[in-house]
Amino acid sequence: MFESKNLLQAFDRVTDYWSPKVVGRVNDQLLKVAKLKGHLVWHAHDDEDELFYVVKGQMHIELEQQVVDLHEGDFFTVPRGVRHNPVAEQECWILLIEPASTKHTGDEVTPQTRSLDEQLA
């Protein structure tokens, strides 16, 4: 049976900042919800683009040559191979769309890094 999902209710599953949860799939792309506060880590995804869509709040994505500000309703795609660091001064809710092969923090490993299994839980 097919059923719809409510994006805002999906955020109820997120209990920790920087800990995305997979809420859907479109072909080889995963849809993940996350709550952000503070900064993650400078990293890159060598083979995958990553889309950030702000559902609630605001954030910015630091790139090596610029900073991209995002507000509710804004989205930005970080191209593959581009080093970036997501930052949210206050709590921000985002929807991420990225290939299933995307590592949470690229090749960087920090206490905030989450495996795909953790994101699926």
Rank of each mutant, 00 (worst) to 15 (best):
P79A: 13
V78H: 08
H60L: 09
L63P: 10
Q58A: 15
K32S: 06
V26I: 13
N85E: 08
H43K: 07
F52K: 01
R83T: 10
K37E: 13
L63F: 15
V78P: 06
V68T: 12
L40Y: 11
D69C: 06
Q65G: 09
H60Y: 15
K56M: 08
V78Q: 11
Q29F: 02
P79R: 13
Y53A: 11
D28E: 14
E62K: 15
K56E: 15
D46I: 03
D74L: 13
A34Y: 04
D46L: 08
K32N: 05
L31N: 02
H39I: 03
V55Y: 00
A44V: 07
Q66G: 00
N27Q: 14
Q65A: 15
F52Y: 15
D46M: 07
H39F: 09
Q66D: 14
V54K: 02
N85S: 07
D47H: 10
D69V: 07
N27A: 14
K32I: 04
I61R: 03
G38A: 07
D28C: 01
G57E: 12
W42K: 07
V54R: 00
D46G: 06
D28Q: 03
Q66T: 11
V41R: 00
K32P: 04
V55P: 04
E64K: 14
Q29I: 11
E48Q: 15
V67G: 04
F75Q: 13
V26E: 07
E62Q: 12
G24N: 03
D47T: 12
D28P: 01
L40K: 02
M59N: 01
E72C: 10
L40D: 07
E62C: 10
